[in-house]
Amino acid sequence: MQVSISHKKLDLRRVLKDRIFYIGVIVLSGITVLPLILILYKLVREGISQINFDFFTRVAPNTLEAMVAVANNETIPGGIANGIVGTLLMVALASLMAVPVGVLTGVYLSENPESRFAGTVRTIADILQGVPSIVLGVIAYMWVVRHITNGYSALAGSTSLSIMMLPLIIRSTEETLKMIPETYKEAAFALGVPYHKVLFKVLIPSGLSGLLTGILLAVSRIIGETAPLMLTALGSSRINLNIAQPTSAVPLLIWEFYNDPNMVKLIWSSSLFLMGFVLFFNILAKRISKRWKI
């Protein structure tokens, strides 16, 4: 049963295959991040020249203004102030709706880990997380545009965004609270502190950084959303603060610029700004989670 020892050739082939595989992994990993670099390069190169003071303070130009500027080889006048204000308004409104319900549901799930109903809620949150954003747009259209504001509105836009935020907040809340040592709670109960105070004075404050991280990540997820807003907030050429009125948003403006040949130059600066906005929240979230680890 002696096995021949003529391994040398076979070994050489195996080592070679191993090397090739290793190089393949590195090359393919490099290709994976190539689009990121190309996209950032494109945004900065084409977008930076349009970013000036007006860009943040003035509303988007109309087609005529843009056409004249392009014809005279000037920078396109105006900015995206209506979009920035609209985005901030809708994000704030969406957070206002999603944060309380999401956090409380997360607390419920972590307080009742075994209950059957909690299991159902968890599954539903999982399913909600997978619902395409365009479908949420359809829903908010049917609920809010048709029946509440009787027309396109910031409220409708925020509704679709808040349903997007909910499962993310629920998940992060539950996970954060699960990591808080049971002893904190026991110590508080041992001192005779009533249940609601333990929750709101001990549990939630100790998990605050985790909750905040979850909320900010959810915000960074919805800031760039375009599709649901097309069906709900529609867009507006004015700065609008009335939640029952059509409202613009940065991604909506990008969509408008994209569809208007005269404004095409503005898409890159707006995209650069949007990217920066998303990154800002993203980095802020990660900073917070690093700074205040439980």
Binding site: M1, V3, H7, L10, R13, R14
Partner: peptide, 17 residues
């Protein structure tokens, strides 16, 4: 794991032994 292809009968023998 070493890429050695063995006949079934040889494998059986090794396993049993």
């Amino acid at each position: 794991l070493n890429g050695k292809k063995l006949k079934r009968s040889v494998k059986d023998e090794i396993v049993e032994k």
